[in-house]
């Protein structure tokens, strides 16, 4: 991370923190603005490396693609809940759990976390373990058809790879 990128990260983090303070406080007098500025500065000093990781290229494009990915993901969450509700309320409980593992092309931290959380929220699957070096996932699936979605179909992996441009 060179100096320019570090400065960019600090400025972006400070702006986000200050905006967040303004929304949460709702007061716009001098006292609250100055207190907010000081608090945002402290948070920025401690954690500017967490939010913006140097790579300033194509952030806007990635954010836009992420925004387009979210509605699809929300629909998957609804499907997941209907599926779980069906399996839980069914008198015989049609479940047959298994653990699967698969490798992906993802390497970036943010991409790995996005796919891991997406897997947990979508039908019948929970991420157990991620190995960042190989992009490898261990996933607990509630039934065989859920495992099928990740081993054969791979729609979600391709979508996340498209969002973060890592394939």
């Amino acid at each position: 991370m060179n100096g320019g990128e570090k400065g960019f990260g600090i400025i972006v983090t400070f702006c986000i923190m200050f905006l967040f303070w303004l929304i949460l406080s709702g007061f716009f007098d001098a006292f609250h603005l100055i207190t907010g500025g000081i608090c945002s500065a402290i948070v920025t000093l401690i954690s500017h490396g967490l939010l913006v990781r140097g790579k300033s290229q194509k952030v806007l494009l990635k954010s836009l693609r992420l925004l387009l990915y979210v509605p699809w993901q929300l629909w998957q969450i609804v499907l997941a809940n209907v599926d779980v509700a069906y399996r839980v309320l069914h008198p015989k409980m049609p479940i047959d759990p298994l653990v699967i593992e698969f490798e992906t092309s993802l390497r970036g931290d943010f991409a790995l976390v996005t796919l891991a959380n997406s897997i947990t929220l979508t039908p019948g699957t929970i991420t157990i373990f991620v190995e960042p070096e190989k992009g490898k996932y261990w996933v607990h699936a509630l039934a065989k058809e859920h495992a099928h979605a990740h081993l054969v179909d791979k729609t979600m992996q391709r979508k996340v790879a498209y969002v973060f441009m890592e394939w």
Partner: peptide, 22 residues
């Protein structure tokens, strides 16, 4: 209900995790 009915730790987390979120 899933928390009560499902057989083990992992499957119970399926129910609580997804249903609570939505």
């Amino acid at each position: 209900i899933g928390l009560l009915r499902l057989p083990d730790f992992y499957t119970r987390l399926h129910a609580t995790g997804k249903c609570d979120t939505l």
